[in-house]
């Protein structure tokens, strides 16, 4: 792994987590620089959450080296956690309390005074666009609102690093875009973001740099653009054939693109000029039911690296 110019905020070498005989994280190396927005991309079970929990100092490291803000999670867990903001995969809000009470009691966990907590809660309610719901109970809020409250809550201690475990899973597109906007603003303010996701578009939107995880290991590292350039082509042509036709194609697509992936419902052809692939396919007399030419994405990178789609 290349050396980073800035001292790393999170530093891992050979980081390993085992649960009994099961290895959840298998000797991974990575560094996160201050102010960077860093992602772990991978399918469910790849080891992303276990890695995040070790960084969050709530899960002991089995093997290897991990430092967070220069400190050792095994010895200085509470000191590190004092400077982290954590957005867990599943909301851990107190649904019996109001929106504002959730923020203020969480601030109190960090030892902040009531006056300070109240001042910050007002700001964060505004930031999360929840001011109008401040005195409502949490239970009936929408998924997107609960998620925004969880993010607001994670900011109450003005953290140096924000850990987000699948921040937008289960949200509708509108709620997701609103959340991305809020996270982008935090990034602009210099907060270091570390996030896990299995959404390509999320990783492309939010991450300066990411690692692709599969089966407890890191299989690639780089910026979204660099990974796409390295592991994919500029464009992808998707051809969808009528049921039964795809199996009879044998070899008819050969040579049309640099690389061809056969998925259950469609064929992906990787080439820098997608339109010319379509023209060439038509010239061979192929008649796909649907044609889509699109830019290559991290989904394609993942497919290339693992031979599987990210979300089954």
């Amino acid at each position: 792994m290349s050396e980073l110019p800035a001292p790393s905020l999170i530093h891992a070498r050979g980081l390993t987590k085992r649960f009994g005989g099961f290895t959840a994280v298998d000797a991974i190396d990575f560094d996160v620089a201050p102010g960077e927005s860093f992602g772990f991309l991978g399918p469910n079970g790849a080891g992303k959450t276990s890695t995040m929990r070790m960084i969050g100092c709530v899960s002991p490291v089995t093997n290897g080296l991990l430092t967070v803000m220069g400190m050792d999670p095994a010895k200085q867990g509470p000191l590190i956690r004092a400077r982290l903001g954590v957005v867990p995969q599943l909301d851990t809000l107190d649904v019996e309390l109001t929106v504002r009470e959730n923020l203020s009691i969480y601030g109190r966990y960090f030892g902040l005074s009531r006056a300070e907590v109240s001042r910050r809660a007002d700001e964060l309610l505004d930031f999360a666009q929840l001011t109008e719901r401040a005195d409502d109970q949490v239970e009936p809020l929408s998924g997107g609102m609960k998620r925004r409250l969880t993010i607001a809550r994670s900011l109450i201690n003005e953290p140096t690093v924000l850990l987000l475990d699948e921040p937008t899973t289960g949200l509708d597109p509108q709620a997701r875009h609103l959340l991305w906007d809020r996270l982008y603003r935090l990034k602009q303010r210099g907060v270091t973001l570390v996030l896990t996701t299995h959404y390509m578009d999320e990783a492309e939107q939010l991450c300066d740099r990411l690692v692709v995880m599969d089966k407890a290991k890191i299989v690639a590292e780089g910026s979204p653009r660099a990974l796409i350039e390295q592991y994919s082509t500029r464009e992808v042509t998707e051809l969808r054939f009528a049921p039964g036709i795809a199996e009879t194609l044998d070899g008819q697509l050969d040579g049309l693109a640099e690389r061809i992936e056969h998925l259950p419902d469609r064929v992906l052809l990787y080439a820098d000029d997608g339109e010319s692939v379509v023209a060439a396919a038509h010239a061979r007399g192929l008649q796909p039911e649907a044609v889509l030419v699109r830019r290559s994405s991290l989904e394609d990178v993942f497919l290339r690296l693992t031979g599987r789609s990210l979300i089954e």
Binding site: G56, V58, R81, P88, T92, L93, E96, F110, R153
Partner: peptide, 12 residues
């Protein structure tokens, strides 16, 4: 509600 997990994410 998992609020104890939320507490443990702080210095508690």
């Amino acid at each position: 509600s998992k609020v104890f997990h939320a507490m443990y994410a702080t210095p508690i």
